[in-house]
């Protein structure tokens, strides 16, 4: 197997990762921006395919293997990124790391987390995604939010045994 898989995959995945880090550092936001991340991943894959077809003039089997390896790395990165951008567990670990004793009373953890705006940020994110609306002091499901909640409940029952949160 004497095909230039490594350079092609390095080009596709490397350009995605570089663009991602640069973009995220230049334009700061706490929203996960998964759609934008997926676009950058697609651009990296496109670059890989263009380089393979136009520059290296590789055969389809090489392009397929390189694209599949790129997809594997991108999927693994999305898995990692989901933890970085959303995980409460990572927040707890990072909070403990910042303390000299690397520990804290559970009550303090609850009050620290509760006094941050994280919960309200989630509501804001749901609002921006048009899944809920604010009606005075109330949070209301939109028809879209209702459909997603019903679908998630059914899918969770089938795949993971329940949506516990």
């Amino acid at each position: 197997m004497n095909a230039p898989l490594v350079p092609l995959v390095a080009l596709g995945f490397g350009s995605f990762l570089l663009a991602h880090v640069l973009f995220w550092r230049i334009r700061r936001a706490d929203a996960p921006r998964l759609g934008r991340l997926a676009l950058l991943a697609a651009a990296g894959l496109l670059l890989l395919l263009c380089a393979g077809i136009l520059w290296l003039e590789e055969r389809p089997a090489v392009l397929f293997a390189a694209a599949a390896l790129d997809l594997l790395l991108v999927t693994a990165y999305f898995f990692f990124y989901a933890g970085i951008a959303r995980s409460v567990s990572v927040t707890i670990l990072a909070d403990l790391l910042a303390r000299p004793a690397r520990s804290l009373p559970f009550a303090n953890l609850v009050s620290t987390y509760g006094s941050s705006s994280r919960f309200h940020d989630r509501v804001g994110l749901l609002q921006r995604s048009q899944l809920v609306v604010m009606a005075g002091e109330h949070v209301e499901l939109t028809p879209r939010g209702r459909r997603l909640a019903l679908f998630s409940r059914r899918l969770a029952a089938a795949l993971s045994g329940g949506l516990h949160g």
């Binding site: 989630r122 509501v123 949070v139 209301e140 499901l141 997603l148 969770a156 795949l159 993971s160 045994g161």
Partner: peptide, 29 residues
């Protein structure tokens, strides 16, 4: 695995489900 994790531990999805189980509307607090 990512989908299962989201469907088991999804924070925002669980909020939607809580709203659904409360009849679709709750005070923010």
């Amino acid at each position: 695995v990512e989908l299962r994790s989201l469907l088991s531990r999804g924070y925002s999805l669980r909020m939607l489900l809580d709203l659904l189980e409360a009849g679709g509307r709750l005070p923010a607090t």
